[in-house]
Design a protein around this nucleic acid. Structure first.
Lengths: 208, 208
DNA sequence: AACTGGTTTAACCAAATAGTTAAATCGTAT
DNA sequence: ATACGATTTAACTATTTGGTTAAACCAGTT
């Protein structure tokens, strides 16, 4: 093993650069030359380390997805009650997406472009949706929650949390007519709003 | 004006074909040759009628967006109460998106790729969000609704309705593990679920 | 100092792709 | 029938793009 440090460094720089380009331009819009430029290396190096654009893309997608999945999963583990769970999921998504708001569009678009591949990539890192459903069902049976379908509730939380980031351009452009400040305020307030809104919807005893 | 019929027919065929290709592959993934093939004409014709890929794309985007905006707008006009409005918006989106489920990803992705252009295109066909907010504010003041921010409520309804279509691959792939039948059932039930869920969240007097 | 094996570079290649052009065709009005 | 302008086609071009190659360049090893 000789110049391992150099190797790992170059590989890292390529993945970093490739991530930046792929997430913003998508697979089709990304250019190997741009990735090389951003990594400040020769284009041949990109192929030397990853052979094809496809293979490099797969590595990038796995990375991006893993970061999100890990943080969500660990927040699921530590939650005991529905309230805590709701707050943890929403909070975690907000933290991740405030940092990397391009993720929803990236994941959704590439997933639609090539469902088989991406589903296969993600399957290995499944989020334990089962535990979530169980908790909700138990709470419904104990009559604390209204009898909504647990799956619908889960999708609702995801939708309420992720959509504003995916559609930020639409919201910015239309509802706030380009005023970035108003949009930021909206996003900040939204974290708590989602929690209040969902609780208000699912609990039988309400807290105005 | 001689062969106008032929002209309009060719132009129509091009737009139809271009729409199909653009919405599924995006601007970057679309190929002029594929559009020509699908329209069963020579590739030069596409350029003869639209000069550039960019111009053709703009025409397609305007069309796609107009169809949606028109149907949503007209459903807003005819609604008097909050309940009716909620049912109309949700129902209209469901009708449109069940037909054209690729629209959310298409619009979101192209909007993120080139916000200035697309926002400019859409601005001319603004949806009157003002009227919506007003109605909500009035209802909050008359104490029928809980005092949520009207803008948040509007975004919630959009999120709950649009997200499952944008993220259908994710939902299909993970939550239902590839079972298309379960997903269809889920979508069918969702139309009513959203209405119940939102009502349960925003109204002070609840109907379990 | 010469050898070795991984790393890096410049130059190159073949395919793909948006866009062009000039000639052919077609319908219509004279 | 013929002339005219719009439409259509086949062939072509320039450029971009993913990918390759062969030679140069290191950094340790002997």
């Amino acid at each position: 093993m000789n110049n391992m440090a150099k190797t790992e460094n170059t590989e890292f720089k390529i993945v970093e650069a490739a991530t930046a380009v792929f997430v913003h331009k998508g697979f089709d819009g990304a250019r190997m030359q741009e990735i090389a430029d951003k990594a400040e290396i020769n284009k041949a190096m990109v192929h030397y380390y990853f052979r094809t654009k496809q293979k490099l893309f797969e590595r990038v997608f796995e990375n991006v997805f893993e970061v999100v999945a890990e943080r969500i999963s660990s927040s699921l583990e530590t939650s005991k009650s529905i309230e805590e769970l709701l707050e943890n999921i929403t909070g975690t998504y907000f933290n991740v997406l405030a940092e990397k708001p391009y993720i929803p569009d990236f994941v959704i678009h590439e997933l639609n472009r090539n469902p088989e591949l991406i589903v296969h990539i993600i399957k290995t890192r499944g989020i334990n949706q089962a535990k979530l459903s169980e908790l909700i069902i138990t709470e419904i049976q104990s009559r604390r929650l209204k009898p909504f379908d647990p799956v619908q509730i889960i999708v609702n939380v995801l939708a309420l949390t992720i959509f504003p980031f995916a559609a930020s351009s639409i919201i910015k452009g239309f509802i706030f007519e380009g005023d970035a400040g108003k949009y930021d305020k909206f996003v900040n307030e939204r974290r708590q709003h989602i929690i209040d809104f969902v609780k208000s919807a699912i609990f039988k005893d309400q807290k105005t």
